[in-house]
Design a protein around this nucleic acid. Structure first.
Length: 501
RNA sequence: CGCGGGGUAGAGCAGUCAGGUAGCUCGUCAGGCUCAUAACCUGAAGGUCACUAGUUCGAAUCUAGUCCCCGCAACCA
């Protein structure tokens, strides 16, 4: 009996090339998916691109391209990065694809027929230079010049109608919005009367979007369009079986900046369509650079590609997953990257492989020794290794990926200590069988550690398993076969020099 | 008094719901080991748990208040 796991990243807005934040969410989704697969769950992982809206149009104009050409040009930057990061998404959706346009069009018709879309006049502060309406708060900030009051006729979605149902759903489903502080934020937001959502833009002002089916003078507001990708991607209105299979298990991973759109806009849209709400919306924090938000204007954007090219994909995945407490902001610094790399990956994990393979090479002609009667110390290590995957599983299910990784590293450190205390290099001189048992225990614990780190570091853990002749083995104790000849190998992670900035 | 989150060793975090010797990783210092990637192991130094008052035999943890930091306050994404 396998569970089902459907995970999404936001569809990324193609007004610029991908940065570390995009990479982070996508790696997170990939890691969660791989963990679920490992315990036998069926999974579906959707990511993609949000290609409509004003900023895409502006970005295209600046490059003297049509919006679609601009998107077609940028899309491969994302897909190539995902390949490089070993992302195994099941689908890649672009909101300019016909399948998506069809779904959005049908939904608009449906909601319109239900009487939940109406025409009204919108009045607000309009920034001439930004070519958009701004909020009261934005106006008060004084960052906008050329601000004037403007009226515009538009189509509105009766979001307000669903305010009470939404509050009820959030309160009855404590896991719906995570972490809890974000749930409180939304409940606080919903204490104010909820307005209706303007879901159209007049083509005269902004024409890059999906045309409103019942009014060809307007295109769809980009969020109304974009959010629907989560159901387009699994076959809503085109493959009922697939849709029904995945949708109730949906987990939306998002950044904290798009909390309201998902928790309020998207939820009420679904309520109006009489569709179930997703299982969980999880908002993670931001990567900060020197304590400030990463932004193009500050020139502090970290390029994930450069990092991967210099340090390898596994260490980048490891660092991002280990360093961020899910839900909180984290600081990205090269110092902490190098520290993590050296202490966790090179010194603890990689070096452990060298220790056991070196000893097995020296005393057992490179063949995994027999495991004889276990002492109390051996059993302690064995039990720690046996319980590892269930500990990891429960951490992953609670979205504590950093803690899941720490569980594995605790075992790795424990094995290093075990070797120190047992000193098989001394024992081998008097009792070779006993030394063999010690090395079997240490190597088997290392193998299980690698299996449990595989979702985070698919390549390097595969190298470890390959050396041990254990590719494809699981996390059960004893799957390491005595007599297996170890393959020769390089250092798993060579230590990095610390003088780099 | 808009709403919410937070302030714990040099750094990053756990512990706070169910009060009872303040814990983890990194860094620093000393020692051990020598199988290994100057690695690994052990030990030590370092904290008035933001502040004040209260409840209690006992408070990082509960209560009240004060100070500081951060997020949200929608229709750009």
């Amino acid at each position: 009996m396998s569970n089902k796991f459907y995970v999404t990243t936001p569809i990324y807005y193609v007004n610029d090339k991908p940065h570390i934040g995009h990479a982070y969410t996508t790696i997170l989704a990939d890691v969660l998916t791989r963990y679920h697969k490992e315990v036998g769950d069926e999974s579906f992982f959707l990511t993609g691109l949000d290609e409509h809206g004003q900023k895409v149009k502006q970005a295209a104009e600046q490059r003297d391209m049509t919006p679609l050409d601009h998107c077609n040009d940028l899309a491969p930057r994302f897909t190539e990065l995902w390949n490089k990061l070993e992302i195994q998404n099941d689908d890649f959706i672009r909101t300019t694809q016909q399948r998506h346009i069809d779904v959005v069009t049908s939904i608009l018709e449906k909601v319109y027929d239900n009487g939940n879309i109406y025409m009204d006049e919108y009045e607000g502060w309009y920034s001439v230079s930004e070519e958009r309406f701004i909020t009261e708060t934005e106006k008060d900030s004084g960052d906008f010049r050329d601000v004037k009051k403007l009226k515009e006729r538009n189509w509105f979605f009766r979001m307000s109608k669903y305010q009470d149902d939404l509050i009820k759903h959030i309160e009855e489903n404590p896991d719906y919005i995570q972490p809890e502080s974000r749930k409180n934020e939304i409940l606080g937001f919903l204490r104010q009367p909820l307005g209706d959502l303007c879901i159209s833009r007049p083509k005269t002002r902004m024409d890059w979007g999906i045309e409103i089916p019942f009014d060809s003078d307007y295109v769809t507001y980009v969020w109304f369009d974009a959010l629907i990708n989560y159901i387009t991607g699994i076959g809503y209105l085109s493959d009922e079986k697939s849709f029904n299979k995945w949708w109730p298990n949906a987990v939306h991973l998002i950044g904290k900046d798009i909390l309201t759109t998902h928790c309020v806009y998207w939820s009420t849209m679904l309520l109006s369509l009489r569709l179930p709400l997703p299982k969980t919306i999880f908002a993670h924090g931001w990567w900060l650079i020197k304590k400030s938000k990463m932004s193009k204007s500050l020139g502090n954007v970290i390029s994930p590609l450069d990092l991967v090219d210099e340090y390898g994909v596994d260490s980048v995945r490891y660092y991002l997953m280990r360093e961020m407490v899910l839900g909180q902001d984290a600081n990205f610094t090269m110092e902490s990257f190098i520290k993590r790399y050296n202490s966790d990956l090179a010194n603890d994990f990689g070096n452990l492989l060298n220790r056991v393979s070196g000893l097995i090479g020296k005393y057992f002609k490179n063949c995994v020794p027999e495991c004889e009667k276990l002492t109390e110390a051996d059993i302690e290590v064995k039990e720690a290794a046996q319980s590892l995957s269930s500990k990891v599983k429960s951490q992953v299910e609670a979205f504590r990926v950093n803690d899941a990784i720490e569980e594995v590293l605790q075992l790795v450190r424990r094995v290093n200590k075990y070797l120190e205390v047992q000193a098989p290099w001394k024992v081998a001189k008097e009792d070779l069988n006993r030394a063999g048992t010690i090395l079997y225990v240490a190597t088997e614990a290392l193998r299980i550690s690698a299996v449990n780190l595989a979702p985070v570091m698919p390549s390097k853990t595969k190298s470890v398993l390959d050396v041990l002749g254990a590719v494809g083995t699981g996390s059960r104790w004893g799957e390491l076969k005595s007599g297996t000849k170890l393959k020769s190998h390089e250092a798993l992670f060579s230590r990095l020099e610390v003088d780099k900035e």
